[in-house]
Every structure is written in C-alpha cells, then in structure tokens.
Design a protein around this nucleic acid. Structure first.
Lengths: 206, 206
DNA sequence: CAGGCATCGAACAGATCTGTATGATGTTTG
DNA sequence: CAAACATCATACAGATCTGTTCGATGCCTG
C-alpha cells in the first residue's frame, strides 16, 4: 500500500518530546504545528508568516484570526512545544527506579535520548533567548515559566536527599544547560553523559 | 569640558573583552564595530544593513565595498569579536598564579568578570548557532575555530595535570557553556561560581 | 597640478515582511 | 432550510529587506 511509506515517513519524524509531525485536526492546529517545525528548525526571525501559511495549507486570514500577531504565534509555539516536552520529560523521569539520587542522575539519560534525535534543534527557549535582543524580557519570561517546573522538581529531589535546594538546583541548571548547548553546538549527544558524571561527583560529595 | 561626559559615556561602555565602543579609524572599522554592537545586542537577523549604515554614518556603497554581503559582514563581526575576546580571556588566564589546577579553576573567575558586564549578551558564537537553522554548518564552523583555541589550552592543562585530555576538556566545555547560558538566561553572573565548584569537585577526584 | 582612491548621498530594483480587507466556498448547527 | 461559522484565495497597503548603480566630493600622493 502506498500509504505505508508516507506513514513511515511521518513515523520516522515523530518524536515524543515534540509536537512536530503530530496529526493536526483544525486549521489552527495545522498552523501551530507547521509554525513550530519551521520556527524551531530555522529560527524565529528567519521564517515569515507567508511561509507558514504555504507549508500548512492554511490561509493568511485564518492565521491572523487565531493568532493576533506573529509574536503571539511565537509565544503559542513556545508554550505548546514546551508543554509537550515537559509531558515527555517528566513522564520519563517517573519511570526511573530508585531514590532521588538515581532520579537526578537519570535526568541525563533522558536528556541524552533527546539529544540523540537526528532532528534535535536545542532547547527552543534557550534558542529564543539567544536570538532575542539582550535586553528582551519577553523570551526570558516565557523561559522562566518553563524552567519553574524543572526547578520545583529539582527542589523536591534536593529536599528528599537532605541537600541544600539552592545549591543543587543551580548546579543542575549549569549541567543541564551546558549539555543542551554543547550537544547542540557539537552535534554530540554524549555530552549528556559528561554532565551526568559531573553530577554524580557532585552528589557523592558530603 | 563638554567632551568629558561623552568620554565617560564611552568609557563606561568600553569592555576589554569586546570591540564594542573602541575608537574606529577607517570607515570599514566604523562599520564593523557598529555592526558588532547591533548584531550582538539585537540578533543577526533582526538588524538590517540600513540600520548599520545609519548608526555608523557610513554609506551603503562603502559597506558593500568592504563586505561582499551581509553574511560576510556577520562572519567578519564574529571573527573580530572572537579575536578580541580571546585576547582578553587568555591574557587574564596568563595572570593566574599557580599550577594547572589553579588555572583551570581560574577560568571561572575570568568568566564571572565577563558575565558581570551589564552589557553581557552571551557568547556570540553560541548565539549564532542558536539563531541559525539547525542544519546550518557555517555558524558551527566559525564556532569551531573559536573553540579550538580553548580546546588546545584545556588539553595542555590536562597533560600538565596528568589527566585524560578528552575527559577534562569535555567536562570543562559543559561547565563553560552551561555557565555562559545560565548567566545569560538568568542575568546572574554567579553561575560561574557554581560551575567553578563543580569543576573543583571534578578535579579533586582521582 | 593631476590621477587615483575612499567615501558619500541618493535613487533604484526586486523581493519579502507584517497585517488587513473582501468576497466566495463550504460545513456545521439551530 | 437558514443562519452562523470556519476557511480559503486574492489583492492590497506600507514598510523593510539585500544589493546595485551613478555621480559628486574630498583627500592623498606622485
């Protein structure tokens, strides 16, 4: 059957941590998912709304009916993609057997799976901050919401470990952001394992 | 004298790790320095050549006489800004007293000084990679040249310490990139100290 | 002084950008 | 059936984008 190849193509690109490639029902969803793929893969400034309407098959009037501006569309993309990523990420973390130490180290196994995606494009929030003007507060505010979930999770692990939450979360942020960027810049997923080793050494200290 | 306030304004913005604000002789230099400030502070895609000519006082024909295209101008900006940063960075490192361990940990003191600049805008190479399309090789190639100096320096420290160069450089890359991004995203220079503590723990292991 | 060189200013080309307006086409729902 | 709704196609406005062209101006050097 001819459909199978198309289906395989879609399956191949489908990643559980991204909304890219997911089936879209409404036109709004089609626009949002197409915008996500184009923005995240090519940069937010590099893609125009005309490209999004063409690739999504939607009309420009529909796009502006659902999203007040390109800026609002970017925000919706970041929020939707962030929500999908978090759902996957914390789902994977919940599968980890063992105590808080195993969970904290397991973070980097989950990250390495993310980095190993051939379509890995870095963290969209970090990319947005890097692309934005250095005094832009909007991208940081969006990233802060996304990051707050991680901070909360890290803090609860720290408390369970009897460790200073501030020290542990700040260390983990450096290791997570560092592996995200190093893996993206070098196309080398194993930077997650490097960060994991550093985290293990840090957790072993007393 | 009226000049003093202008001079102070310029002095205040002058940072040793950046070419921004440095006196420009030729028109080429004026264009290059203006482009550096605008690109690095606002993003490479966000700034057009017209803005650069206006702010620099140069004409468009002069810009295109010295730089074949906007892309080439971006490359020249990255190379010039990277060279200025490296000159400052390795100059600071050479001031550090002590052995390779003190030098490796001193990296993060130097980084913290960089992050503490009120005009800190992250690493222009990492920003360029984040902004570019995820399959863009040009920005990675430019960053690789910049990074190769750091890798060489790190390797020589590792050899002097009798440590595996690959393990140590990869760990340091994670900590350096991580503190660069965390400091940029959170506007918090003390992430350098966090990375330093992690590095100290890693170096203490045997 | 004269020729070369760097630069400026301004206009231009052609494409692309965000966002709006209008009318036609279907599709769902009361 | 009819009203409401979602969507599409297209054209448009006005700005901005990269890059080119042309002529005028001044400066330095042989």
């Amino acid at each position: 059957m001819l459909d199978s190849t198309l289906e395989n193509d879609r399956q191949r690109r489908l990643s559980p941590w991204s909304t890219i490639g997911r089936p879209a029902g409404s036109a709004r969803e089609k626009i949002l998912l197409t915008a996500t793929e184009l923005f995240c893969r090519n940069g937010f400034e590099a893609i125009g709304v005309d490209t999004i309407t063409q690739k999504s098959g939607a009309s420009k009037s529909t796009l502006y009916k659902h999203f007040a501006s390109k800026e609002k569309l970017i925000e919706a993309v970041l929020e939707a993609e962030g929500a999908a990523w978090r759902r996957w990420f914390y789902g994977e973390l919940s599968k980890i057997h063992g105590g808080p130490r195993a969970r904290l180290l397991g973070v980097f196994d989950v990250l390495q799976a993310w980095f190993s995606d051939p379509n890995y494009y870095g963290c969209p929030y970090l990319n947005a901050i890097s692309e934005a003007a250095c005094d832009d507060e909007r991208s940081r505010a969006l990233a802060d919401v996304h990051k707050s979930y991680l901070l909360t999770w890290l803090q609860s692990q720290a408390l369970e470990l009897g460790r200073d939450p501030s020290d542990l979360t700040r260390s983990m942020i450096v290791l997570i952001d560092g592996s995200i960027m190093a893996a993206h810049a070098s196309r080398d997923a194993t930077f997650a394992a490097v960060a994991q080793t550093l985290a293990a050494g840090h957790l072993a200290e007393d």
